[in-house]
């Protein structure tokens, strides 16, 4: 073996690809699911993939937090709401009318193009050139000072998720 680092780099790249495939396949499961609960489990798979990507980037803490908060708390809460609405024997008709799927595809494409615009405009810097301190203390300080706005915005997204699950639950078992 000429270069001792090379095999490890190869292994880590395999892991990277694995996590990306995991995240993407979760998304595909979520979109193509027949039951709402399967869609949510697709989300769980995606979140695990993202947690793996954090692990690949060297931030073990963020990756654990991803599992603890998103999979352990938020997904469970959403499952709880969904369980109030349907069980396996109640297969529902998927509302796949032409107009609906057209609108959904349009909205998805618009969001995607917005995201690509931002990705294109942003000047990307590798994390290592900005800081080499990935400790919990550093992460905590950054989150509550420099990135406070982003941090709060994420909680807004979660609020939407909770409201959405309540709306789903309300139309369920009652009828």
């Amino acid at each position: 073996m000429a270069d001792p680092v090379l095999p490890y780099q190869f292994v880590s790249e395999i892991f990277f690809c694995g996590f990306v495939v995991l995240a993407l396949s979760g998304g595909i499961i979520a979109v193509s699911a027949r039951y709402l609960l399967h869609a949510l489990l697709g989300l769980v798979v995606t979140l695990f993939g993202v947690a793996g990507l954090y692990l690949y980037l060297g931030s073990f803490f963020i990756s654990l937090m991803q599992v603890l908060i998103y999979v352990g708390a938020i997904c469970v809460t959403i499952v709880f709401a969904i369980m109030l609405t349907e069980t396996p024997d109640q297969v529902k008709e998927n509302h796949k009318s032409g107009l609906r799927s057209f609108l959904a595809a349009g909205a998805g494409l618009a969001a995607l193009s917005c995201a690509f615009q931002f990705i294109y405009l942003t000047e990307w810097q590798p994390a290592l050139s900005r800081t080499d301190d990935f400790s919990i203390i550093a992460v905590g300080k950054r989150l509550l000072t420099e990135y406070c706005l982003v941090f709060e915005m994420i909680s807004l997204v979660l609020l939407f998720a909770i409201i959405g699950s309540i709306i789903l639950a309300r139309g369920g078992r009652g009828n």
Partner: peptide, 23 residues
Amino acid sequence: DMGIIFILALASLNVLAILLAGW
């Protein structure tokens, strides 16, 4: 260096397992 968070993160999956089993 974050052992207890590791344990808690894994323990939180237990609820998901029970939910899936029940549903």
